[in-house]
């Protein structure tokens, strides 16, 4: 029979763990709120930008802009967005699985291929498993608190390489935020930029704008902004998803701890009762023997 003392000790251990998971859940909830506020603040900017660009590209001849040119994907970069820290359920696992699939399937099609990482977890995983020549740069310490400035730096780097034709395609794999309990792994093409789909274009009425200095130059001013905000959006989606995933994971951990505590206390009580019963039996037995 298990020792009563041992069981009590286990109960208190589980209780401590439960306190930690509970606290982590609350923190994740607060951070999730903050990240969501950031998304909401960035959304009007992104939407207005994309509607103006779509208008320009669909009605104009802007298709020859260097950032819109579709080249055959020979030199390709994949950016894997994971978290810096663990304890967030299947969040990183899903991303890594998707990235692995992509690498396996497409590797052979590309002449030059590199994987970059935002967030430490993805890098930790792939640096051991991938051919070292495939492992590209890691952008550390971004997922803690992604700022527009950091997103701009990444976006500028990608655009630079794209314009120099060192890169033909840039893909991002990240978790899209659906709700606190559901995230969706998404593979998205950052470069070359595509305008909105055709069916949306019919809704946009043609407006004869006056351009200053010229249509090309307006587009040149707009496209980099668009790409920067896209990277920013991706980072924010990823961070929200991370906190959402962590919140759910910690919530179920807390529930599990509670179940464990209750079954352990039941066991402890039963043992205690058994000990008492045994003692009573002994006393009664002793008294009977004395009478005898």
């Amino acid at each position: 029979m298990p020792n009563l003392k041992d069981i009590r000790r286990r109960i208190s251990t589980v209780k401590n763990t439960q306190q930690i998971t509970k606290a982590m859940k609350m923190i994740a909830a607060v951070k999730l709120r903050k990240a969501q506020d950031q998304i909401l603040a960035a959304r009007p900017y992104a939407n207005e930008l994309i509607s103006v660009i779509s208008n320009l590209v669909i009605h104009g001849e802007g298709k020859h802009h260097p950032l819109l040119i579709q080249r055959k994907p020979h030199k390709v970069r994949l950016v894997v967005v994971t978290s810096d820290r663990g304890l967030c359920g299947a969040y990183n696992g899903n991303i890594i699985r998707r990235a692995e699939k992509f690498i396996q399937e497409k590797r052979g099609d590309f002449k030059e291929f590199k994987v970059s990482f935002i967030g430490r977890k993805g890098h930790d995983y792939f640096k051991k498993r991938l051919d070292p020549s495939l492992v590209g740069k890691i952008y550390p310490d971004i997922m803690k608190h992604p700022s527009f400035e950091q997103a701009s730096t990444i976006a500028n780097e990608m655009m630079d390489e794209f314009l120099k034709e060192h890169l033909d395609h840039v893909y991002f794999i990240y978790n899209e935020f659906k709700s606190a309990i559901s995230q969706k792994v998404v593979l998205e093409t950052l470069l070359p930029t595509r305008a909105k789909k055709e069916e949306d274009s019919q809704k946009l009425q043609k407006i004869d704008y006056l351009y200053e200095p010229s249509r090309e130059e307006v587009l040149t001013a707009l496209l980099p902004k668009h790409i920067r905000i896209q990277v920013y959006r991706i980072l924010l989606e990823a961070v929200s998803s991370e906190h959402g995933a962590r919140m759910t994971a910690m919530d179920s951990a807390t529930t599990n701890a509670r179940d464990m505590i209750s079954s352990l206390s039941l066991l402890a009580n039963r043992i205690r009762q058994a000990v008492i019963t045994k003692e009573l039996m002994e006393i009664v037995g002793g008294a009977e023997a004395l009478k005898g």
Partner: peptide, 19 residues
């Protein structure tokens, strides 16, 4: 301040895009 110089917009302006 447009890139080519200052621009004043008054009500009734024609559709206009500028950097």
């Amino acid at each position: 301040p447009s890139e080519a110089g200052e621009v004043t917009i008054l009500p009734g302006h024609t559709p206009f895009l500028t950097a």
